[in-house]
């Protein structure tokens, strides 16, 4: 449903994300997890056609985000980091406005607004001015807005930030209830959050994708895994085969390939440096470099497991 390929974005000289790639299946909930300034918002803004990438491409429902942006915007609902609300408007008027600019047919506007109000439990504040609602309710109005016109894809940027624990639970339940009917990407900087709502997680740090897995696997992997970076001369498949045959290997990822030299990142349950070297040499591959890369994931993990705010 969503294919993201090598997205890179610069702000002036500063690179916010580089070569971000991942896929999301139809009906899946994907978590985009990363510490502050990792590039989550940047990635989401590119996917929702708010701004173009410097390089790279992505498609949503088969539509290219740059070439077919109107189609992408039609099938995508988006809740930005700060809910995009007009404080002077009443909830009902605001949602009607959103329905109109999303191109909902006149005779369906009422129904769409009712459905969104219902999903976001906004019934008792429908006729209140948005500016006078509490933070949590403003967030819900933002969420309701993203669900108008029943979008196939919903992109939520930190949907539970600033809410109290009870509201967090409600919003999580709401998001889980959207599963199946909608394809969802949500971002967060806390692991427990994505653990509870997402089926798959992409961890992004410093603008790069550093891991991609189910929340359960990620937790076990990060708690007791060894990460090794290798530079190997030879064929990709041969490298994967040579390393994959070893026991205790969790994942093998080819990061870059340059003139026949591959940069490989391997995660394993135990220290396999000796075995890896032997296996590669036995397979007639040129091992150019091998060094442990423990710090990064553990570092990120530390940031991500810091306590849930407010909970």
């Amino acid at each position: 449903m969503i294919e993201v390929k090598d997205l890179t974005r610069y702000y002036g000289q500063k690179r916010a994300i580089s070569n971000v790639s991942f896929n999301v299946q139809k009906g899946e909930i994907l978590g985009l997890l990363g510490p502050n300034a990792a590039g989550k918002t940047t990635t989401m803004r590119i996917l929702t056609c708010y701004m173009p990438p410097t390089s790279g491409t992505a498609t949503i429902g088969g539509y290219d985000i740059f070439e077919q942006s109107m189609e992408v915007r039609t099938i995508t609902g988006y809740l930005p980091e700060n809910p995009p609300i007009y404080p002077d408007l009443e909830v009902n008027d605001y949602l009607k406005f959103v329905a109109k600019i999303k191109g909902v047919e006149k005779n369906r506007i009422e129904k769409e607004v009712d459905a969104a109000v219902e999903k976001a439990s906004l019934g008792d504040v429908r006729n209140r001015v948005i500016g006078k609602l509490s933070k949590g309710y403003k967030q819900r109005v933002g969420l309701a807005q993203s669900l108008i016109n029943n979008p196939q894809v919903v992109i939520l940027d930190e949907p539970t930030v600033g809410l109290d624990p009870k509201q967090i639970i409600e919003i999580r339940e709401l998001i889980r209830s959207l599963k199946g009917e909608h394809t969802i990407i949500l971002s967060s900087h806390i692991l427990p959050e994505v653990e509870q709502t997402c089926e798959r997680v992409v961890i992004i740090s410093n603008g790069r994708v550093v891991a991609e897995d189910t929340p359960e696997n990620l937790t076990t992997r990060m708690r007791g895994s060894e990460r090794v970076q290798l530079e190997v001369e030879g064929d990709e498949d041969a490298i994967k085969k040579a390393l994959g045959s070893l026991p205790d290997i969790l994942s093998t990822r080819i990061e870059t390939k340059d003139n026949g030299v591959c940069k490989v990142v391997v995660e394993s349950k135990s220290d396999l440096r000796k075995e890896m070297a032997k296996s590669l040499v036995d397979s007639n591959l040129g091992l150019l470099e091998l060094h442990p890369d423990k710090a990064t994931l553990e570092d990120i993990f530390l940031h991500l497991t810091t306590k849930e705010e407010g909970a």
Binding site: C49, R73, I101
Partner: peptide, 14 residues
């Protein structure tokens, strides 16, 4: 200022 441009630019409005 309000960030509502994010709504305008990401809905199918030219």
């Amino acid at each position: 200022k309000q960030g509502t441009v994010e709504l305008l630019y990401t809905t199918p409005l030219s």
